[in-house]
Design a protein around this nucleic acid. Structure first.
Lengths: 214, 214, 214, 214
DNA sequence: CATTAATCGAGACGGTACGTCAAGTCTTGCA
DNA sequence: TGCAAGACTTGACGTACCGTCTCGATTAATG
């Protein structure tokens, strides 16, 4: 998925690419990210850790940015949305999972850096959307559908409206957790997740006692 | 404010630092950020643009990271919170202003990059908090106080609770706008701002027709 | 000879070093020495003249000192000792040749400078001895052997004594020419060479009319 | 002597220059030369050691080269030529004294370096001649006159011839000691001094048993 | 089963930017 | 005015990575 195939139609003649190398390189990238952080990360070091030549790495990825997107994207594939019985519980659960990933240094260092690079690189931005953003929106879609099945949320008027709502919620949830964790640099712990979920579901105008609606 | 004072007690002996240089350097930094972006930004170029020697720059800032934090921080000082008559209108206004800043390439490139670097640099994180985060929380505090005066929001139980709410709202607003703009890479336009404000104030459970409560 | 070989056993793996680069760099060093002199000589300029990256230069030589020793050493390899029929004529010949080399600006600037640096750098001193001093002592040894074959000089008692005499003569000849040329800054012309040779062979006590013994 | 006087006639107006400063600066230069050597020597450090501002230093000397010539020249003024009873003994004595000075790091590092610089700087070359070369030729002149008084050496035909001989002997003695000490990097000890003196006085053709003529 | 064509390791290559250091000048304020 | 302090411009330093290249040595699938 993440590496371009060497030929247009099919890997015809010649020695085929080592499948193990891809795995080793991505793992080495994460390891290097942990030790060195984004700015000191260098592809020569990654190649050495993976037991691979620098040329092998450049044959498969265009550069540092794309490599790190791929390496970080795999982290977010761990996210799951088990049914915790209510929308509030589901949200709190995914917020805590997301926060846990963002505690890991390989995610912290890498994620914001590639987003920063993506502000000036359309292809990179597309890659991030495809491998991280769009892929994790499944969580919002699934949680929303489940809540609608439970009757907690109304159905949307149409598909366009549904997509807009999913996008908005994703930006609100992911944005708040990322901002709390990386910009404000405070832990997104259980208390914070509960407060956040309350506002997200009931709004700031809500005056009810905590826990009444869940 | 952003530059270290040259002496511990008082700038007594020797030639004093040129005050104009600071201004020129920060402006040059933003200009270079627009043209080159974070990753191609180099201090030699910044120094040349500012009409200043590279050593002068290094005498005043420890490095690229701190320089960019200072340069970007000035951008956010433009944010204002004029009274638009209702909390909803105030939020929409500040969201649109914030989004407008994040459209500017010097902010886009710089902000996420320094946040990324700050994940491995405590001093840098502190600098970001002091110059950007804590400074802009004034907007949340002011908006909240104004809404309480209008009777739109209840008063907090105590100061600790108030601070927690301010922090939460700041992360939710800033996080959502940043994520929408930089990660999802979609415009935070008027429509989006309205939808966001609605959810923030009324929550996802809200079923009222749009506009009833504002 | 002057560049370190990249591998211990044999230059096997990896791209081999360009052989032409060594030649180009040493020639560029001499050219830069002529134009700029030692103190203004800089490796960036040398690299540019040689059409080579600065890193290539640093990969092969530790620094300016060693590079200049190698570049200057090649100049002295031009020295020859053709048989002019008598020891006096041979000495005058080599003195004039040596003086001619020291007229050249690349030798003038470089030689004394590296000797100066070598006063605080053992490795550099060893390099000078190996590439310049010991290499040119061949001239003294050869001239002495030839004079002994002619019967002009007696044979030494033993090898140790021979080595001491060779060292002494080398220091006297080279020292006098260098001092005349660079310190006193007077030309070591034919007249001077004749006077010097007379004293070296006959001593200050000699009272004979010039030319009687040759 | 070595510093230019600030005004044409007398240091009249304004604060007069501190006389102690000159002494302190030259001493500091030698101290820095011992610790750092020529190439690492820097005028900021010298100024600090001398308890003087860098500007003061530049007001009195044009630069590093001239400063070091002055500092080193003072060392050679220590040379003396006590009457040891014979020309051979006088020469051996001065050779040993000269060698002793060249053992001192401040002389080793500085002397060759300024000679190297002087190859491209006429004013510097003149300064070296005036302060070092010409000044120490007094030793040769005095030794020669003494030997003539003793009857060891004949008188010259005329003054021009006398000057040529003095120059030649000076270059031979100083050149040999410098070359032995700094280029060959061997000690100019008592043995070497005796061998050198023998050759200088009797020549290489001499076959007599050592010591017969002294 | 030999050929063939791409991949692999290693490492040199031309570049660019780094952050530091020294040279020499300029600008203060004090004596 | 001389002087100490120290900021200033300039420019080289030596290092580290960048992404490309040139090698000789493996490897499969093809012929």
């Amino acid at each position: 998925m993440q590496s371009r195939s060497p030929t247009g139609r099919a890997g015809r003649a010649g020695r085929p690419r080592s499948a193990a190398a891809d795995t080793a390189i991505l793992a080495a990238t994460r390891a290097a990210l942990v030790e060195l952080g984004w700015s000191k990360l260098n592809l020569g070091d990654v190649a050495a850790r993976a037991g691979v030549a620098k040329t092998t790495l450049y044959r498969r990825w265009p550069g540092k940015n794309e490599l790190v997107v791929d390496a970080v994207a795999e982290l977010f594939d761990e996210l799951e949305l088990p049914d915790r019985g209510s929308l509030a519980a589901d949200i709190e659960g995914v917020v805590r999972q997301f926060a846990a990933i963002l505690e890991r240094p390989e995610a912290r260092s890498g994620l914001m850096a590639v987003v920063a690079e993506a502000t000036r690189d359309d292809a990179l931005r597309a890659r991030i959307r495809a491998l991280i953003v769009d892929r994790q929106k499944r969580l919002v879609r699934e949680g929303r559908a489940r809540a609608q099945r439970r009757g907690e949320l109304p159905a949307e008027r149409d598909a366009r409206q549904a997509a807009r709502v999913v996008d908005l919620i994703f930006d609100m949830v992911a944005g708040a957790v990322v901002h709390r964790t990386l910009v404000s640099a405070e832990p997104a712990d259980e208390d914070w997740a509960r407060g956040f979920t309350r506002v997200l579901l009931c709004g700031l105008f809500d005056t009810g006692t905590p826990g009444d609606r869940r």
